[in-house]
Amino acid sequence: MFAAPTACYRSAAVPTGVLLTLLLMISVAPVEAADPPPLTHRFKPIDEPIPAPPLRLPAVDGVVYDLAELQGRVVLVNFWATWCPPCRQEMPSMERLHRQLESRGLTILAVDVGEDADTVVAFTNQLEPAPTFPLLLDPDSRATQEWRVKGLPTSFVVDTEGKLVMRAEGGTEFDEPELIERLRTYLPTP
């Protein structure tokens, strides 16, 4: 039986062509129908918050977003890719979280790793609900490396002072009530 992974990893030691060939072989191999594993809400606090690395990237619409300009807001930074099953699975819950907490001061920046705008838009247009938060492009994976992302999806919470306060590796159910309550503790009080 085939079980979908909870995180996607890409090793720098394996050539991209080999990875794509393996991915194609897996995707066309006959498998039993199986539900993907449930997403979690495994955000863990960072014991000693540190300043977030720089993040300045264009979105699929060409607008450039700079994390430094968002100081004073809580920012959820999610690194993902369209080829990653748990990344695909968590995207609708991220939009639901965005709709719930944007007015309270939460900004979501979803950083696509290694793909172009057409690929990202084609995928996200199929989602229900479709994302309304910025979809940033990191085509050369430079930001991904600066943020020390080891696998996809990986998410971080940056507090109002620009410090990393929480991290999650693997697929996350972003609109889980427990996670929403934890995020509210970082948001400015209304």
Rank of each mutant, 00 (worst) to 15 (best):
A130V: 14
H41Q: 04
L67C: 03
R42A: 15
K44M: 10
T21G: 15
R182Y: 06
M94F: 04
G171C: 02
H98S: 13
A122V: 12
V77D: 04
Y186H: 08
R73D: 15
L20H: 13
V149K: 00
D47E: 15
A13K: 13
F2P: 12
D112L: 06
L57H: 02
I108L: 05
H98A: 13
E32Y: 15
L22D: 02
V18I: 14
H98P: 06
D175P: 04
Q89K: 08
E176R: 12
V64C: 02
D112A: 13
A143Y: 08
V157E: 03
P190Q: 00
H98C: 08
F123T: 08
A117G: 08
Q71F: 01
R10K: 13
V165Y: 14
F174D: 04
C8E: 08
I26S: 12
L101Y: 05
I46G: 01
E115Y: 05
V60S: 10
T124W: 00
L20Y: 12
E128C: 13
E173I: 07
T119W: 03
A4Y: 11
P54I: 04
N78F: 09
S11G: 12
T160C: 05
T6C: 13
D116K: 10
F79L: 06
E178K: 07
L39D: 05
E176Q: 09
T6P: 10
A168Y: 06
V157P: 00
R73M: 10
G170W: 00
V75N: 01
F123S: 06
G170R: 10
A4H: 13
T119E: 12
R96G: 01
T160R: 06
R88G: 07
E115P: 06
S141V: 11
T16D: 15
L70G: 14
D140K: 07
V157M: 09
P54E: 00
F123P: 06
Y65T: 06
D159K: 02
M1Y: 14
P54T: 10
T189V: 14
R10F: 14
L164G: 07
I50M: 14
P51C: 12
